[in-house]
Design a protein around this nucleic acid. Structure first.
Lengths: 142, 142
DNA sequence: CGGGATCCTTACGGATACTG
DNA sequence: CAGTATCCGTAAGGATCCCG
């Protein structure tokens, strides 16, 4: 069976190149990469906070009282591993740590803004008129 | 203790209004709403496909051979519950079903495009130069 | 101060089999 | 054709305690 890749018509906006033209969730697909970056509970909140500048561990704990130390350091480690956050440790006593976004981490700002905008749009569309089947009369192709 | 909400300086772009100014993952936060919409394995792939027009159940199964019937119908049900997808059933034999995006579902297109763009950017920034600490000398506030 | 180690519980995704 | 029902393994998130 020839794969459907050959015959399928591709939306140039949604899948401009081979990496996006996948038929399974592939780690190399840009969409998956971006989603992985912001995935996990608390992650977007942490990113939002780090967008305001470097923060310390305890500082973050104070800002997010319901976030346990374990999960916080887990999130921060993941963000480090993904190259989105960098750490700086000041020796001495007490120990000081600063977490800050890398360039890659800062690149997520646009996405966060878009997530917010889309979320608001969804809230508008789904709570305003609770009419089932929102589809308007004649519009499929713009 | 007065909550930090009163004293915290807010990024008007990241959190323009109270719903985004949360200190825990709240379901009402627009960012969470948007993330919930695209969350789950296979979800973005299904959305990408539905952006091209209505699709049938078996059609989707054929397009995604590695996606089991259980997970597919699970995803479709979730998307329906979130008001992102609508179903149309043709009676008779054999049964025909068509899944299509609602207006809310179509609103996700912009987000998918942004996810792709951000993902590519991340791939660029993290694979090109594998230098640790990507931060450039002097730039925090633009 | 800034975590790591351990344990537990639930949610998720996948495989298989069956039905209107 | 278009699903549902059942079972199962893994991973994610949280609670608690401990340590340099």
């Amino acid at each position: 069976m020839g794969h459907q890749t050959e015959t399928h018509v591709w939306d140039e906006e949604l899948a401009p190149e081979p990496r996006g033209r996948t038929w399974r969730p592939e780690a190399g697909c840009p969409v998956e990469v971006a989603l992985a970056a912001v995935s996990g509970r608390w992650t977007t909140l942490l990113l939002r906070e780090l967008m305001g500048g470097p923060r310390g561990f305890t500082e973050l704990r104070t800002l997010f009282p319901d976030l346990s130390a374990k999960v916080l350091s887990e999130r921060l480690r993941t963000l480090r591993e993904r190259g989105l956050v960098a750490v700086e440790r000041r020796r001495g006593f007490p120990v000081r740590t600063r977490y800050e976004l890398t360039r890659a981490g800062e690149a997520l700002r646009v996405l966060l803004v878009e997530l917010y905008a889309t979320g608001e749009e969804l809230l508008r569309l789904t709570t305003a008129s609770e009419t089932r089947d929102e589809r308007s009369p004649g519009r499929l192709e713009a």
